[in-house]
Structure formats: C-alpha cells, structure tokens
C-alpha cells in the first residue's frame, strides 16, 4: 500500500469517492428540487462536528447523526403554515449558526474550523478513505436498488401508489442518503459547499444528457474531473480544497452549457 502513503493520492481518491457519492444522488436533488433540503442538512454538519468532539465520537458518526436528525426534523415540520423554502431557510441557517456557536465554545486547540467549513485534503487518512468509499458504495447501491421507483415517484406519486410503490418510504431513503453524503463529503468539500457538489455536476450533466441514467453517469464523471482538477489546483496555489473543487465544477458547468447550446442549435 505504498501508493496510499502519498497524501496527494489519498486526497485524489477521497475527491473521486466524494464525486461518486454525489453524482447520481445529486441528480435526484436537482430533479426533486431538494437543493435547500441539502443545504440545511449540510449546514447541520458543523453542529455534528462540535457534538462529536464534545462526546468523543468519530466525526463522521456525529455529522451523520445530526444530518439525519435535521432530515427528519424537516420532514416533521414541513407542510405547515410557513412555506417550505422559508422553513428550510430557518432550519438551515439556524443549524449553521448553532454549529458555529457550539464550536466557538470548544477549547480552541481542539478544532480547526476552516477544515470543516471548506474541506481539508492534507489530512485524509486511510480511515477517511474507507468512510468515503464505503459511503459512496452504499449511496450508489441504494440508488440502484430504488432507481425505478424513485424516478416514477418524481413524475407522479399517484402513479407510484397505483403501481404498489411507497413514495413516503423512498422520501425517507433519500433523506438518509443525503445525510450520508454530507457525512462523507465534509472532509473534501467542507460543510458550506457540499450542496454545490450535489447540484453543479448534476446541472452540468442535464445540459448534455437525454436520459436519467446518462445524466447520473455524466454527473459522476464531471464531479470526478472537478475533484481531480480542483485538488491539484488547491495544492498548486495553496487554496482551500472545497472551494477549489467547486470552482473546477463551475468551470465544467460552463463548458457543458456551451456544448449543450451548440448541440441544441
């Protein structure tokens, strides 16, 4: 395992793993308009980091737990008198603020806040790789299993009911998967930009894809290229990992936009 001794190799594997976890799931975030939901879940991650340190559990476990709690909280309060986007705004920003306050109360030596907000590639351990790839495989596996049902439910929940599917269960599954992606992506992209890793590759893929499967595949590929390019850039220019990766993804979105336009005309 000498290859894994190189921190850059580990960082790149982590980046590609994050892209794999985000690619297909990001398509559902775009199709089902869950961007705000993703934001709220991701922003809750900082609170998860603080709680994990407080109770001495591993960080992905703490993040996953809080992200899951956020997902279910959103499910419980949605459909009330406040519009869903406002409600998600309340939860999203409250979670972020609460997380930042909680972190500031910790002894300062114990936490590098920037690393969790913007990603950190210098300290990707083998354990991190295991968590990221384990999460990516889990997310993709579940999506493959529920793929047909999830697509049918986007089009019409009544149609899905008539076919004997249970849209409610699949909504819960999607929330759990998003929480999982937040937990595994925080290392590379950081809490602030996790949603963009879900949305930008998927949106870029939409411009060139004609089918849902192709869109998921393109999104994964675009995410992977963005991760590799962004991490190299971060190393070369000493810029933070997450923003660098997202800048690369944004660049690919522009390319895809132009390609889509040229093809369309």
């Amino acid at each position: 395992m000498t290859l894994l001794d190189d921190f850059m190799v580990r960082a790149l594997l982590a980046g590609v793993g994050t892209a794999v976890a985000c690619g297909a799931l990001g398509c559902f975030v775009v199709w089902r308009r869950m961007a705000y939901f993703g934001d709220a879940t991701a922003h809750a991650a900082i609170l998860g980091v603080a709680l994990a340190l407080m109770f001495s559990v591993s960080i992905p476990v703490g993040v996953l737990a809080v992200a899951l709690a956020m997902g279910f909280l959103i499910g419980a309060v949605s459909g009330q008198t406040i519009a869903p986007d406002s409600m998600l705004g309340v939860l999203s920003h409250s979670a972020l603020a609460l997380g930042l306050v909680a972190v500031s109360l910790m002894p300062s030596a114990r936490i590098d806040l920037d690393a969790y907000l913007f990603g950190d590639i210098l300290v990707v351990s083998r354990m991190d790789l295991l968590v990221i790839w384990g999460g990516a495989i889990l997310v993709c596996g579940v999506l493959a299993w529920r793929w047909q049902a999830l697509l049918a439910e986007i089009l019409s929940t009544d149609l899905a009911h008539a076919a004997g599917l249970s849209p409610r269960l699949d909504r819960v599954i999607l929330s759990v998967l998003i929480a999982t992606v937040v937990a595994v992506s925080i290392k590379v992209v950081g809490a602030l930009l996790i949603t963009s890793m879900l949305i930008i590759p998927a949106a870029a893929a939409r411009l060139i894809a004609r089918g849902p499967e192709a869109m998921a595949a393109y999104a994964t590929a675009i995410g992977a290229v963005a991760a590799i390019a962004g991490l190299h850039g971060a190393r070369a220019f000493g810029t933070p990992a997450g923003p660098s990766v997202i800048c690369a993804a944004a660049g690919l979105f522009c390319v895809s936009f132009v390609v889509g336009r040229l093809r369309g005309s």
Binding site: W31, L151, L155, S156, A209
Partner: peptide
C-alpha cells in the same frame, strides 16, 4: 404528470 424539465426522459 410532474414533468420537470430538469429530468431528461
């Protein structure tokens, strides 16, 4: 049908 233009189908 909830035909979302974001879903290519």
């Amino acid at each position: 049908l909830q035909i979302d233009p974001t879903l290519p189908l």
